[in-house]
């Protein structure tokens, strides 16, 4: 990993020296133990030596693409004619970040030509909560994040600069958590969902941490037509159901929502379900293919009608 970090720093300083980027988004050392955190460096005002700030280790779990959209979002009053040209962003990506970036490109939120993607090989990120429980910091496999255990995209493709190295093997069962949950009784599932959601404090961290949640006005914040109340159980359930459902066919399975939650609500059991259904029903995965069409933006005449109610003695 040190080797990858060194190469990343050299690459970043080259990009700065050649003035090919205005910003570099990467990771820096955090203030707590076992923590790396996102950093956004304005390289127009700093020299190539700032690349020494960048780190790459097993704690770089944040999805950095969450910062991209705001660089390119049109201003509320509309873009002025003499506005400055859009900025060029150098972005450090691992597999899940890249999947989110491609989502933003597919959804035309971010212009590909303004991005310089630096792809890093990922061996999985460590889960601080697991480390606290297991105590054994060195046992990587035991402390790896659940999302990384199910990752098939640790080997990035289609980036501008790729640093090669060890990546994760593609796992066998991708949706075990969903299958186990599906096997439980309905009452059990509802009770679990309610139990998890009852801890929600509506801090919106799950929404804010998600790279796909970029709506200018979230349905949960609408005031003119107020959809959600002030946090009764049903309001909170609706908030989560709709927030997760909005990620159907868009979720990059990075688990940023799950990690951001201060109450450690098990969101992944539910986000995974939509990923599984989208893959099984429509054959779509948020992969590295830039040209693919998001499944809910299109349709096929062969889509299943099996969920349709047929009246018993039809007319």
């Amino acid at each position: 990993m040190i080797e990858v970090q060194n190469q990343m720093r050299i690459l970043a300083s080259d990009l700065i020296r050649q003035k090919r980027v205005d910003f570099i988004i990467g990771y820096e050392q955090g203030t707590l133990a076992h923590t790396s955190r996102p950093c956004i460096i304005d390289v127009r005002t700093s020299g190539p030596e700032v690349s020494e700030k960048l780190v790459w280790n097993s704690y770089c779990s944040n999805n950095l693409s969450v910062y991209l959209q705001k660089f390119f979002a049109p201003p509320v009053q509309g873009r002025k004619k003499d506005a400055a040209p859009p900025l060029r962003i150098g972005l450090i990506v691992k597999g899940c970040d890249l999947r989110s970036v491609l989502n933003l490109i597919r959804e035309k939120q971010v212009p590909r030509e303004n991005l310089i993607l630096i792809g890093l090989p990922c061996t999985g990120m460590l889960d601080k909560k697991k480390m606290e429980i297991n105590k054994d910091e060195l046992d990587i496999e035991k402390n790896i994040q659940d999302s990384c255990l199910e990752c098939r995209f640790s080997n990035v493709k289609g980036v501008d600069f790729e640093i090669t190295g060890k990546t994760r093997e593609v796992p066998g069962d991708l949706y075990e958590v969903v299958r186990l949950f599906e096997a439980r009784t309905r009452k059990d599932r509802l009770a679990y969902f309610e139990k998890e959601i009852s801890r929600c404090i509506r801090c919106n961290a799950c929404r804010q941490a998600c790279p796909s949640c970029y709506c200018r006005e979230c349905f949960a914040d609408q005031k003119d037509m107020k959809w959600l109340g002030s946090g009764t159980m049903s309001d909170t359930m609706i908030y989560h159901l709709i927030r997760i459902f909005h990620q159907a066919g868009r979720c990059a399975e990075c688990d940023a929502c799950f990690r951001a939650c201060p109450e450690e609500i098990d969101l992944r059991t539910f986000t995974r379900k939509l990923a599984k259904d989208v893959e099984e029903l429509f054959g779509f995965v948020t992969d590295f293919n830039r040209e693919s069409i998001p499944p809910l933006s299109t349709f096929s005449s062969g889509d299943s009608d099996s969920f349709i109610t047929e009246p018993e003695e039809g007319g």
């Binding site: 599906e182 159901l241 539910f270 379900k273 939509l274 259904d277 029903l281 429509f282 809910l296 005449s301």
Partner: peptide
Amino acid sequence: SGNLVARRKFTLLKNFLVYTGL
């Protein structure tokens, strides 16, 4: 094609709501 787009959405929605216990 409104109903064809809706069909995909509703397939997922029904599965998802049933999954969460409806």
